[in-house]
């Protein structure tokens, strides 16, 4: 502990972020996808469901830039439309999962007692089902609409968020400054929102990034099973499913959206890794060979 402030040289905002090369590449790829999600439809040469060629599963360069799919639609245009659906749905579901999971998780950690027991047992019951199976049952019973899809995936993801935030809340909840607030007579809401939450932000942000990739994969998986986004809307997972038959004909129409999903999730993971490393201080990795 020192009273002397050690000056940290700060050339610009970017220097302050202490970006690594990996983080710059991952961040650039993600920014590109976000940019395309906003502007994609205006940049797309053809319509979302417009059939441009009678030739189905046309190879790259024929028909469109990236060929055509099973109905002769432009793969490139559908990719540009699909990125919006994929990103937006993933974002909404993750936000829902966090709103529910963090609130209940922290509340359980702070209130303890019967509230914790009931909520925890319900969450465990949900977690006992394989998540895909659970989603299949719910969507199967309630029908395939976007609302049902989003709520179901949000619910499934929120169980994991609940466990993480409950553990975080338990850790922070026994720290002396929370005890001090309790001794002062503060209510549960103050403790949750002012004492616990600000100190849980860093791990929660990292968790958000990870859940976001889970959500993309999960939604793509559901689309692939035919329970997610429905044709003629474009979605990357759906595109893989539609064009899977083309694989045997030598078409890349299924591989391109699959590669896009991979780029999205991998870059998100890399960015989360960078963030966590930065939080812990990158020096941890420096002297490992001593």
């Amino acid at each position: 502990m020192s009273d002397v402030d050690i000056p940290v040289p700060r050339a610009s905002v970017f220097a302050g972020l202490r970006l690594t090369k990996t983080a710059i590449v991952a961040g650039a790829v993600l920014l590109l996808w976000v940019f395309l999600a906003i502007l994609g439809p205006t940049l797309a040469p053809h319509g979302e469901a417009e059939i441009i060629s009678t030739k189905t599963f046309a190879p790259i360069g024929e028909g469109g830039w990236l060929g055509t799919d099973k109905l002769g639609r432009d793969v490139f245009s559908r990719l540009l439309y699909g990125v919006r659906t994929t990103l937006l749905l993933a974002l909404i579901t993750t936000v829902i999962a966090f709103a529910a999971g963090v609130t209940l998780g922290f509340a359980a950690a702070i209130l303890r007692g019967w509230f914790d027991i009931i909520i925890s047992r319900i969450v465990e019951a949900f977690m006992a089902f394989p998540s895909t199976l659970l989603a299949l049952v719910v969507i199967g019973a309630l029908g395939t609409s976007i609302t049902v899809l989003v709520l179901t995936v949000g619910l499934v993801l929120s169980t994991g968020v609940f466990r993480v935030s409950r553990a975080l809340g338990m850790d922070i909840g026994v720290m002396d400054f929370v005890e001090a607030a309790r001794a002062r007579g503060e209510g549960a809401w103050w403790i949750l929102s002012r004492e616990v939450l600000p100190n849980a932000m860093a791990p929660l942000i990292a968790e958000f990034g990870l859940r976001f990739t889970f959500s993309i994969l999960f939604l793509s998986g559901l689309s692939f099973l035919g329970l997610g986004v429905q044709e003629p809307d474009a979605d990357w997972g759906l595109m893989v499913q539609e064009n899977i038959g083309g694989l045997f004909l030598g078409s890349s129409a299924a591989l391109i959206p699959a590669a896009c999903i991979a780029s999205l999730t991998i870059c998100m993971n890399l960015l989360v890794d960078w963030f966590q490393q930065r939080q812990q201080g990158e020096t941890v990795l420096e002297k490992i060979d001593q």
């Binding site: 002396d176 400054f177 001090a180 001794a183 002062r184 600000p198 100190n199």
Partner: peptide, 24 residues
């Protein structure tokens, strides 16, 4: 306990590092 009682008796913890919310 009511506020007056809480106010009359205050507690100071051992670990100064952890007794203050680092984000405030």
């Amino acid at each position: 306990r009511d506020k007056a009682t809480l106010r009359d008796c205050q507690i100071v913890f051992q670990m100064a590092d952890t007794a203050l919310n680092p984000r405030m």
